[in-house]
């Protein structure tokens, strides 16, 4: 490959100053409207990040309206409150859990469809064509099977999730295709587990005396501190590490019909450094540096992503598609669900 830096096809042009202004206005209006404006805030945030993301010189865009998002959120919030109150009733609670389990894949598919439809690149909308049945298999059955193997099969689940969410996406009439040997997933998985194990053992040895007090009725308060330290040193880095390795693996095996091939070469250590230093800076500035931190991460990720364009980018055409409402999207927003799309 020739000089990578100059041939990069992906770039992010947002700036921290600009995003700070948009962010603080979003936050203020959301607070004074008791959360109602959050729907419009989401649209503005997505538009800002999408429109500043260029692939092959053409940017993405986000098309949902605040009203659509708001209606979805009202339905979900009312549903969640009803769920919270009603689940205290014995039999109703059990029925509700089963009901939620049954409609969860449906909500997920609606969320993916809505977000695909509302996203465009170069004036062409994405679409998602996955079925609810397959989503049930991937997001309900597979996790249960994975748990039965004591999570040794987790890499298979993760790959299945990526295949489902990516291979059912299309840009206009052209489909995305991802597949990768399982080996890469297992390497990332075991490296992550290894990191957690090493940090846990080291922390355990250092903190052995205060751990002994856990058995006593009045545990040492420093045990709670120790848990946070463990989360900060073991869990948080492990999740970030894994995410970065899987991002490289996924994007580098991703192609768009027509011969356009994606590539990602983020450094897991660098991503971890940015994520950790961002977290510390955001906390120390009581959140004021959050916009800066978000822009910093977006820029790093874009700078380490590339697309090899093979042929014309002018022949994509938006396909007619049935509209998906915003309920699934609102649900995954509020519950913070990860469908497994690489970002």
């Amino acid at each position: 490959m020739q000089d990578m830096e100059s041939s990069r096809q992906v770039s992010f042009t947002g700036t921290a100053r600009e995003w700070f202004g948009i962010w603080i206005v979003n936050l203020l209006l959301t607070i004074v409207t008791l959360g109602i404006y959050s729907a419009w805030a989401k649209v503005r945030r997505n538009k800002y990040f999408y429109q500043n993301t260029y692939v092959a010189g053409r940017n993405l865009d986000y098309h949902a309206t605040g009203l659509q998002i708001l209606i979805g959120r009202i339905i979900v919030v009312v549903g969640l409150i009803a769920y919270g109150v009603l689940s205290a009733i014995p039999i109703v609670g059990l029925v509700l859990i089963l009901l939620l389990l049954a409609i969860f894949p449906w909500l997920l598919v609606r969320s993916l469809r809505f977000n695909a439809q509302m996203t465009s690149w170069s004036n062409v909308r994405f679409q998602f064509v996955g079925t609810v049945g397959k989503a049930f298999l991937v997001y309900i059955v597979y996790p249960i099977l994975t748990a039965l193997t004591l999570y040794i099969a987790f890499p298979f689940f993760d790959r299945a999730r990526k295949r489902y969410s990516i291979n059912n996406h299309r840009l206009g009439q052209h489909g995305f295709h991802f597949d990768a040997p399982i080996g890469g997933f297992y390497i990332a998985f075991f490296l992550t587990l290894g990191w957690v194990a090493v940090v846990t053992v080291v922390l355990g040895v250092i903190a052995a005396p205060s751990l002994e007090s856990m058995a006593s009725p009045e545990p040492d308060p420093s045990v709670i501190g120790l848990f946070y330290l463990w989360a900060f040193l073991a869990f948080f880095p492990a999740v970030t590490f894994y995410g970065a390795m899987i991002r490289n693996l996924t994007l580098s095996n991703l192609a768009l019909e027509g011969g356009h091939e994606f590539h990602s070469d983020v450094s897991p250590a660098q991503v971890l450094w940015i994520a950790l230093s961002n977290a510390v800076i955001v906390l120390c500035t009581l959140g004021l540096m959050l916009p800066w931190a978000q822009i910093r991460m977006a820029r790093y990720l874009a700078d380490h992503t590339d697309v090899a364009v093979n042929g014309s980018l002018d022949d994509f055409v938006t396909q007619a598609q049935a509209r998906a409402g915003a309920i699934g999207d609102a649900y995954s927003d509020i519950e913070g669900i990860d469908v497994g799309l690489p970002i």
């Binding site: 959050s38 805030a41 955001v282 959140g287 959050l290």
Partner: peptide, 10 residues
């Protein structure tokens, strides 16, 4: 509702 604007840590 404001989580989208606060990030997961905050």
């Amino acid at each position: 509702l404001i989580a989208g604007d606060t990030g997961p840590i905050l």
